[in-house]
């Protein structure tokens, strides 16, 4: 399982966004985000090469009631 670490989180929040974060809090964020990243990585195994976000709206239209 790929993991983020506190140093990487601190670099992004402070270096890119200018938001100060303690080492301890950066570690918490790293743990929380790693869980989410891993969840999406597993789910994305089903994605086709051509899938794109805009397809969602077509799925809504296709599943609407037929009147």
């Amino acid at each position: 399982m790929a993991t983020l670490d506190a140093a990487a989180v601190k670099a992004v929040l402070e270096g890119i966004h200018g938001i100060a974060v303690t080492e301890a809090r950066a570690g918490e964020i790293a743990r929380d985000v790693t869980v989410l990243v891993e969840g999406v990585r597993k789910a994305s195994a089903r994605l086709a090469f051509e899938d794109e976000p805009q397809a969602f709206r077509a799925v809504l239209a296709a599943n609407a009631p037929r009147s």
Binding site: V33, A43, A55
Partner: peptide
């Protein structure tokens, strides 16, 4: 919201790419 700033772009976009197939399956 701090958590959100640390989400990799590809992870966010894959979550959106999955929305169509996951919704189709659920419906």
């Amino acid at each position: 919201q701090q958590n959100g700033l640390a989400i990799p772009a590809a992870t966010y976009l894959d979550a959106l790419r999955l929305r169509g197939p996951v919704t189709q399956e659920f419906c």
